[in-house]
Amino acid sequence: MEIKILGPGCARCKATSEALEKVIQSRGIQAQLTKVEDMREIVSYGVLSTPGVVIDGKVVHTGSVPTREMIEGWLAAKH
């Protein structure tokens, strides 16, 4: 699974990254987590409001730090 976190590196983006890492580790999920901080590349996903989360090429979330429940839901849908 390939997960991308879209955001310029602000506190909310870091919190999103940490939240994802926490769930991935606790569930033992094999996933590659990448941060995308380049503005042009972020917008190339059609995203203006960050942080955004992209899982296997699909934007699943934008504009806020996702909750643990949200993250678990996305990851469960992929397994």
């Binding site: 042009r40 996903y45 996305w74």
Partner: peptide, 13 residues
């Protein structure tokens, strides 16, 4: 999940 596709964007004018 949102079906948003990635598009290669040329450099903005």
């Amino acid at each position: 999940m949102t079906e948003t596709t990635k598009k290669e964007l040329a450099e903005a004018r």
